[in-house]
Simulated scan of single mutants.
Amino acid sequence: MSSLKLSANYDFSENPIPHGTLNGVAVPFFATPEFRQELTEKFKLRPESDVFIVTYPKSGTTWMQNIVRTMLMSDDTPENAQLKLDDRVPYTDMSLNFPFDKIEGWPNPRAFKSHHATPSEMDKLIFKGDRSAKIIYVMRDPRDVSVSLYHHLKKTGLSKFVEEATFDEFHKQYMRNSDVVYYGLWEKHVDSWLSKRTEFNMLVIRYEDMIENSSREIEKVAKFLGAHLPSSRIEEIAELTSFSTVMHKGGLLKDESGVTNSILRKGVAGDWKNHFQDKEEAAKMAKIAEELYIKYNLITPNLE
């Protein structure tokens, strides 16, 4: 049996990338049903102050985690201030190190990151019907998502398939295979969350807008979170959380294990143009994204 199979209670496969299947959706191998049951039983929501950063993987999650942490936790205790980003803004599907023993003692506000496939799943696990907690949903061009996840997984050593696959092979055989891609197809994840944005306390942010004008988007986040900040502080947060600053700052991510290099790569929009050999596939993905933007009355970005 594979050492990565952490539960007897999910369908597990190492192909093409190690994953389990829960509720009909592929999830990382560490997202076990036992952990989700533990989360349901142990996580005590603070709806008036908890913040959840929800994304499809590789959509700007780390950037938004850093923004929220910098904005809301500037007066952290020395103990919490020295924590890595994923330890201070933990991942609600990461069974390997979720800090149940610590989060109960954390002051308000707390922040968490999630990739859960649907709001109803997250409601069942965490919200339990109280939908007043703040959710920041970050979305990104699916073509850049595919490129970013390709490079991320290539460096993890989890899969011979990814190590050997060309980008086009990865995109078509993994990203567009609903049975194996983590958290399902991009468009299903986005559609699922945006369809409930008025039922939950949700702010929608686009990665491309953050690239275009990070200060403007950070100001939106601040207003949503009730943080009344002067423009000088908004600009400071934009600088402190910029890609160039983070890449030269030690201790933010788990760089001692090499994770930084797989999580942060370029921090740009449009890198898909350097990877998609199949231009028809790129155009198809742009069409899928455009239809969702139109459906939810979002300003359509330049998807050429």
Rank of each mutant, 00 (worst) to 15 (best):
K42W: 06
Y91H: 13
L303W: 06
Y10D: 04
M247R: 15
V246F: 01
D191E: 15
E208Y: 02
P230Q: 09
A227P: 05
S148I: 04
Y296D: 06
R233A: 01
K102D: 14
F98N: 06
N15D: 10
K84G: 03
H171Y: 13
L229P: 07
E34N: 03
T241I: 04
F29S: 02
L203P: 13
Y293V: 06
A8M: 12
K42H: 08
D278F: 08
F35Q: 05
K249H: 09
H248A: 14
M94N: 14
T61N: 07
E280H: 00
A165D: 05
T77A: 14
S242E: 05
V51Q: 13
D101I: 03
H189G: 09
I299N: 15
T55I: 01
K128Y: 01
R265M: 04
I17C: 01
K220W: 10
D101G: 09
L4N: 09
A81E: 14
A227T: 00
M202V: 11
I67G: 00
Y296A: 09
H228D: 15
L185W: 02
V89H: 09
L240D: 02
N297E: 15
Q277T: 09
I136T: 03
L264Y: 11
D50L: 13
F100H: 11
E48I: 06
R36W: 03
M1L: 12
T62W: 03
I136P: 03
I237D: 07
T198L: 11
K128E: 01
M122N: 02
G270T: 04
V89S: 02
F52T: 06
